[in-house]
Structures are given as structure tokens and as C-alpha cells.
């Protein structure tokens, strides 16, 4: 049991800074300056910080308060209680009691932030793959994609002939142009066209013209090798296209559409 009494120097005995720090299970007792006994202990290190409060003394006294002419507040010092070891919850750096917490501050924070960051990073990777999976369900499936591409063998098409194949539900014209046709289409004055496109922009190889066989007017299928310009002629409203698939006469506003394609050996892959 500890009880500590401090006397005010000038105002005593009227004003007493009295405080009690009492061990666990201690019996409360009104202790006055006059009741001091052999239990009265005043530590050598006991120094007032200010007039109203005291600090920890020797690691034993836990609380000090002040009152006027009466018993002050009583708190328990718990020096007789066994405190379990919390070392499992403490970091190595904080186990040294002589080190200030400020010295290990960056160290401790760094580890916690490192864990947070690694959690965030791995979650981001995880989330990315989940979102990609979810979004890719909206992409066309493989069987649709397999149908979206067609391969046409070019060596089966004689010169000057036009082959019609079905591609994504639309007719596709593949025309083997003769040297005379190529010459003719190249010589056309582009500025005189309704939809000005030079011939070399519409073909990848001069010999082959590949266009979608849908009239840009109202969607009929033009007839090959007819019309005033030797290319295509739409029977519905009389649009004339030349051998480069460009609109030359009639109501259609645009040239025949060129699909994406590439040549692989002697075949063409459209799509």
C-alpha cells in the first residue's frame, strides 16, 4: 500500500495536494497529513510537474491528483497484478523499453503499409482477371468468330470473272480484273467522282477487287459485268458502278464497301 502526501509549502495546512495510489484490494482509508505512519513513502524521484498533476513515479505510482483540504482521488496502482505477456502482439522493434516509439515509427508503419499495398496489388490483379472474364462474356464466342472469317481460293477465279460468296450473311464480290480494267480505273479523274476514292486505295492487289455486294442506295445486290462502266449494275434503281466498285451514275451515294481482308498465299482471307 502506498500513500503519498504532499504539503503545499506556503498554504499548509489549509491547502494540501493529496493523492493516493493504492494497491489492489487495499482498504480505503482517509489519510491526512496528521495520520502519517510508517507506511508513508515519499519517493526521492517524486517531482511535481505542475501544481495540479503528477507523473509516473518510479514506474509504481500511477496517478496523482490534487484536492483542497481533503482526501484526493484514489486510483489503483496494480503493482500486485500479474500482467500477461502481450509480446505476441508486439513488434520486435518495440520490445526494447529503452527505445522511444518515435525511433521505430517509420519502421513499424512501413511494414503495415507494405502489407496493405501487397493486399491492394494482388487484389487488383485478381479483380482485373475477374473483370476481364466478365467483360469477355460479352465478346462474340469462338464459333461465331470462326464463321466470321472466310477463305476463298483465288486460283479458281478466271480473269474478268466475278465470284459471289456469302460472308456474314451478305454477298461478297471477288473480281479478277483484267489488265485493261486496271488501266481504265487508274486513269479515272478522282475529282470527277461522287465519292472520290482513287483505285489504289480500294484494292490491295491490282488484280483483285473485293467488295461487299450490297448497293449503297437501298441494299439490292448489283449484277456483275453490266452497266455503263463495265463494273456492276444495280437492277433496282439503276446505279452504275465501275470495275473498282465506285458509284458513277444513278442514285447510290457511296462506293461499294470494301471489307477487311488479306492475301495468304493464293487465297484471300476475308474478315
Amino acid at each position: 500500500m502506498f500513500s503519498v502526501v504532499i504539503k503545499g509549502n506556503t498554504l499548509a495546512p489549509h491547502l494540501k495536494a493529496t493523492s493516493y495510489a493504492v494497491g489492489h484490494k487495499a482498504i480505503l482509508a482517509a489519510v491526512n497529513a496528521s495520520h502519517e505512519g510508517e507506511e508513508h513513502i515519499v519517493s526521492q524521484d517524486f517531482k511535481p510537474i505542475d501544481a495540479h498533476s503528477m507523473r509516473l513515479i518510479n514506474g509504481q505510482l500511477k496517478a496523482v491528483s490534487k484536492s483542497v483540504n481533503a482526501i484526493g482521488q484514489v486510483r489503483y496502482a496494480h503493482t500486485d497484478i500479474k500482467i500477461p505477456s502481450f509480446d505476441a502482439y508486439r513488434r520486435e522493434s518495440t520490445k526494447d523499453p529503452k527505445k522511444s516509439s518515435l525511433a521505430t515509427d517509420a519502421d513499424r508503419k512501413a511494414f503495415t503499409y507494405l502489407m496493405t499495398a501487397s493486399f491492394a496489388a494482388t487484389s487488383a490483379v485478381f479483380a482485373k482477371s475477374v473483370i476481364r472474364g466478365a467483360v469477355s462474356t460479352m465478346a462474340p464466342s469462338k464459333d461465331v468468330l470462326a464463321l466470321a472469317k472466310i477463305e476463298v481460293k483465288l486460283d479458281e477465279i478466271p480473269e474478268g470473272k466475278n465470284l459471289t460468296v456469302k460472308w456474314r450473311g451478305k454477298p461478297l464480290f471477288i473480281r479478277h480484273r483484267s489488265a485493261a480494267e486496271i488501266e481504265k480505273e487508274r486513269a479515272v479523274d478522282v475529282s470527277s467522282l461522287r465519292h472520290p476514292e482513287p483505285d489504289d486505295q480500294r484494292v490491295k492487289q491490282d488484280k483483285w477487287l473485293i467488295v461487299i455486294g450490297v448497293c449503297t442506295h437501298l441494299g439490292c445486290v448489283p449484277i456483275a459485268n453490266q452497266g455503263d462502266f463495265g463494273g456492276y449494275f444495280c437492277p433496282c434503281h439503276g446505279s452504275h458502278y465501275d470495275a473498282s466498285g465506285r458509284i458513277r451514275k444513278g442514285p447510290a451515294p457511296l462506293n461499294l464497301e470494301v471489307p477487311p481482308y488479306e492475301f495468304v498465299g493464293d487465297t484471300v482471307v476475308v474478315g
Binding site: T112, M115, S118, F119, T122, S123, V125, F126
Partner: peptide, 13 residues
């Protein structure tokens, strides 16, 4: 691999 990394971080948290 990702699951155990996330698990460890959650356990620490």
C-alpha cells in the same frame, strides 16, 4: 498463389 498472398495480408490486417 494470389489467394494465399491475399489471405496472408488479410490475416495480418
Amino acid at each position: 498463389i494470389y489467394g494465399s498472398a491475399i489471405f496472408l495480408a488479410c490475416w495480418y490486417g
